[in-house]
């Protein structure tokens, strides 16, 4: 059984929701990432989405674009991200780690080599933004054979036909992109999220993680009443960006934001 399933089952048993922070590996520097991951878990994170830097992040807003650029300035690519993930795993055997990025680094490495390397690094899930189910069969089979969950995105304009298709290929959780747009953008409309999630649940049993547009404890709390997981990225990366001269301060700020979200979600 995958760590994601175990984690979501355990949370469901206690009536809690997953807090899923996203950071880009190697931002603002390579030494920052693994200690930050541990600190996020200590502050209340249940799953970690680790961004793989990419030169052309087409679905990301300026905040995550700049995070990618900072990491790439340190030459952090897929192979080094996998090393960071295994380093994290040495001390933390429970918390699922989900890689999130774009397809080209995986294409260049080769699907099978990637699946093997991800298994070795004890990665639990993979989100590939520009790999829709139509093109995903080969990659999905290789990952599932190794107990790694391919996590797919769905959007406000996804039809129920598409949700069915996504449900056939995806496992672990289903990532619902709450706004039509790029990461870090838009205003979260919780009424619409609620309506759409009801529609999505007709076609999937998977836990749903909602992301895009969640910036503070209040929105995290609202989303936690609707979905099994709350995904937050740009809000944390903004803290890194605000403190480029002082990564320790960024770390403290992120920990505090996570704690406040955790508290709001559990209350």
């Amino acid at each position: 059984m995958s760590r994601l399933k175990i984690q979501f089952d355990a949370l469901a048993a206690t009536g809690r929701k997953a807090l899923i922070p996203f950071i880009t590996a190697g931002d603002p520097n390579p030494e920052f990432t693994v200690p930050m991951m541990h600190a996020m878990v200590d502050a209340g994170a249940d799953v970690i989405e680790l961004g793989v830097p990419f030169s052309d992040p087409m679905a990301d807003g300026p905040i995550i674009q700049r995070a990618s650029e900072r990491a790439l300035a340190h030459h952090i690519g897929l192979r080094k991200v996998l090393v960071m993930a295994s380093e994290f795993r040495q001390k933390d055997k429970q918390t699922p780690v989900v890689l999130m990025g774009y397809l080209n680094p995986i294409e260049i490495m080769g699907y099978e080599e990637f699946a093997n390397a991800a298994q070795q690094a004890e990665i639990d899930g993979v989100i590939t933004v520009d790999l829709p189910p139509e093109e995903a069969r080969e990659c999905v089979e290789l990952l599932k054979a190794r107990d790694i969950d391919p996590v797919f995105l769905s959007a406000p304009n996804s039809s129920s036909e598409r949700i069915k298709k996504i449900n056939t290929f995806g496992s672990g959780y289903l990532y619902y992109v709450s706004v039509k747009g790029i990461t870090g953008a838009g205003h979260l409309d919780t009424k619409n999220v609620e309506k759409k999630l009801a529609e999505i649940r007709e076609n999937t049993q998977l836990p749903i993680g909602v992301g895009f547009g969640i910036k503070n404890a209040e929105t995290a709390k609202t989303i936690a009443t609707l979905a099994e997981g709350v995904v937050v990225g740009s809000a944390f990366i903004s803290k890194i960006e605000e403190n480029l001269g002082n990564p320790e301060k960024a770390k403290t700020d992120i920990v505090e934001l996570i704690k406040s979200m955790r508290q709001a979600m559990d209350s």
Binding site: N104, P105, E107, I108, M109
Partner: peptide, 21 residues
């Protein structure tokens, strides 16, 4: 170049060993 995926299609492109363009 080498084959990879960029801008919605698989094709030949210029990428390094990490798949960065």
């Amino acid at each position: 170049g080498r084959t990879g995926v960029l801008h919605g299609n698989r094709t030949y492109l210029m990428a390094d060993d990490d798949g960065e363009i």
